[in-house]
Design a protein around this nucleic acid. Structure first.
Lengths: 72, 72
DNA sequence: TTGTGACTATTAGTCCGTA
DNA sequence: CTACGGACTAATAGTCACA
């Protein structure tokens, strides 16, 4: 997978923002409407996630999508 | 297509940032390594672009990816 | 609670054109 | 310069059982 480190950074951002709210992957999955294992792979930087799903996650975290782009 | 207005806003951001630099779609296509007609459809909000390509576009525009998320 | 591999349906993205 | 279309291939979305 190309740009793996960028995807990893992005995924790490999701993970830390999720944990900052004491949410499990399953919690976030429920709120975003995405599959838990899919979210896990996004957090690990294994998926090249698309715009709509980025926005679903930001929404579920109650933040702006911009915050997911810290350091990427 | 779901979330059409969000994709449109995102595409508009790309378009105005591109025009602010007096670049054509073809210029941006060359710099980003993406297809010209594909970029056009992204700007029109017709495509659910993936993360790596979002970053390619931000790079080609010389900006942070965050700037593409104004108002989305 | 999370990681992982496997899988199919759907979409992303390319390349060729036209106006 | 840009919109738009057709046809095509590569890649992602989305799900599951099991580790």
């Amino acid at each position: 997978m190309k740009n793996f480190s960028i995807l990893q950074t992005f995924g790490s951002n999701i993970r830390s923002l999720r944990r900052a709210q004491n949410m499990s992957q399953e919690d976030l999955a429920d709120r975003s409407g995405l599959d838990r294992s899919y979210l896990g792979s996004v957090e690990r930087g294994e998926r090249n996630i698309s715009l709509i799903n980025i926005l679903k996650i930001a929404n579920a975290l109650g933040i702006s999508a911009k915050e997911l782009f810290n350091d990427v």
